[in-house]
Design a protein around this nucleic acid. Structure first.
Lengths: 346, 346
DNA sequence: TTGTATGCGTTATCAA
DNA sequence: TTGATAACGCATACAA
């Protein structure tokens, strides 16, 4: 490839045609229907393309085609590895469909989310996958009204007005707390918040349900609310937990996600508590850092990559299949038991 | 906004013009030079735009403009939070310049990297920021030959043929080991690899230099090579470390990044070693999970966001400033001391 | 098998 | 202040 920057502009099909001594249409044929062009000309054109360092201009293709060849995923929290695993699943599926994937990060801020969406609509992406700050926000319904295929990721669609993929969070809560009861715990903390997050509510709901089914007194499942699902908040929940009078102090904690659990674990270790002997901990999501913790964390596993792949499949179906019907895909979470809940008590 | 999907296609300036009863040029003026348009017509046009739900078509703009309004960052390892923090710094700068940012992940694979670059060239991005699998790979020089501004991130440009941003890794190695010597350690392990990674070599080089300067015997700085910079490899290094005869066994380890350090920490705790009393640990990068570890990790801090911001600044300068000269920006790493090296020995 | 002509949506130039 | 027109690069329908 020789650098032929004709006037700073990248070479176009026209330039290739001129260099190869053929018409523009023939060059286009070489690119899109190589079989209809004779071997000799094809080779000549290909040589010219290599010579000039020709690269298709995607915006021109896209303008012509009327649609881009890209999907987008707007994730909620780039600092949480969970979302990157989901993104990887999406990318796998996008790749398979020969589509690009734009990954955006709203970082929990509605304004950033809206801005990203604006851009994506301008880009005419084929579909938008999103884990929204607020599933009921106006700009989401706008996407749908625009006729852009879109799928809620890791959130349920209450209305059924669009596709969604998520795990059964109530079940996830049940599994976690049943495991703790099984391990002999009779006083348990639920760490998580804010309650405006549907998943927090549902995981707590599942926890309470199974707690009641086992005939445990309601007041022995203590909710330690947090302001966010972060390591920091997990630490601060640990402090509040330590501050409880010892007869009220839980012997185990179920955290609404792994970041909280890691923070809680850190506080416990710093405070000289043994995990799991003095305090057992269960997280949620099963991010890689859960297994990597000093005391490997028991966690409720979400099939992160599969969530992503399925979401991509659904959005592609909506984009290409005229008979598409919205679907709420639900996955079953699974407990992954590790050292942080290792022993049976007594 | 009423859904007016004329034939499935999104409304164009032409549609807006028709709806507002003006010419297409006037609509364009409303969009790009609102001041030249009378208030009355402007309002009429704006109403029509709202009515139809008009959104500019970015590919058409881009085709017209000849260049996209986007930057791209191709990162090396999406599973390592370090790179996301860098990406966030880049995004901040891109945002300020009203550019979109495409974030890609090569995941350490050269073929994926090349594929991403192909796509980005087709998209005609304004510039490419990249932490490459191999800084000497052919597709990198191709980018430059194409005249696309590009910057190496977290890697040095040996040749000086392009911009780069990185920290002084030799210095980073010095700082880390000096800290350990300071804490009274006389046998130290360097955990990291493969040596094909320049940073591993340089961090080790710095470690050795300061080790020698303090008059310590060469054989007491033990290199435990790893096959990658991952938590798993850190764990396996821990096993090898534990297998050393006790008179040879280091009392401290300097890991070439935080993932290795977290893995090593986990192994140590599992094996019943006290950190830092039996084994002190220093990491590199200072990712958030380092501070969040059960035993908070001492780490050599890279100014991650600033690396990103600077890289973006450089690529934008190359893209817009005709007098641009390539620049190798070097940042100074800083030690962040935490509990994992907490005590002075003896 | 190859060439010619047209339009995608936008912006800018020029004329009215 | 507004309108008509051309051009960006590509893909395709159709003509040769």
């Amino acid at each position: 490839m020789t650098p032929h920057p004709r006037n700073g502009r990248a070479p176009s099909v026209k330039d290739v045609a001129a260099a190869a001594g053929v018409s523009l249409g023939t060059v286009s044929n070489v690119l899109n229907r190589p079989s209809v062009v004779s071997a000799a000309t094809r080779e000549r054109v290909e040589r010219a393309m290599a010579e000039l360092g020709f690269v298709r201009n995607e915006s021109a293709r896209q303008l012509r085609a009327g649609t881009s060849r890209a999907l987008a995923y707007v994730m909620l929290d780039g600092g949480n590895p969970f979302f990157h695993d989901v993104a990887e699943g999406i990318e796998t599926a996008a790749e398979a469909a020969d589509l690009s994937l734009f990954v955006c990060n709203s970082n929990g801020r509605s304004d950033r989310e809206a801005k990203h969406i604006d851009r994506l609509v301008q880009q005419r992406v084929q579909g938008i996958l999103i884990t929204p700050v607020d599933p009921d926000a106006g700009h989401l319904t706008e996407i749908a009204q625009r006729g852009i295929p879109f799928v809620l990721v890791d959130r349920f669609s209450r209305s059924g007005g669009h596709c969604s993929v998520a795990v059964d969070d109530v079940l996830g809560g049940r599994i976690a707390v049943e495991h703790l009861i099984d391990r002999g715990h009779r006083r348990v903390a639920f760490v998580g918040g804010p309650s405006s997050i549907g998943q927090v509510r549902e995981r707590l709901q599942g926890a309470r349900a199974v707690w009641a089914e086992f005939g445990m007194p309601e007041e022995d499942l203590i909710h330690l609310p947090t302001e966010a699902m972060t390591v920091n908040e997990g630490r601060s929940a640990g402090e509040r937990l330590a501050g409880l009078p010892s007869r009220r102090r839980p012997t185990a904690a179920f955290c609404a996600n792994d970041l909280l659990a890691l923070g809680l674990l850190q506080h416990a270790v710093t405070a000289g508590l043994r995990v799991p002997d003095d305090l057992a901990i269960v997280g949620f999501d099963d991010i890689d850092f859960a297994a990597a913790a000093a005391v490997p964390l028991t966690s409720v596993r979400q099939p992160r990559q599969e969530l992503g792949r399925t979401a991509a499949r659904l959005v592609l179906d909506e984009a290409t299949n005229p008979d598409h019907v919205h679907e709420q895909a639900t996955f079953v979470p699974a407990l992954v038991a590790r050292a942080s809940t290792g022993t049976v008590r007594r």
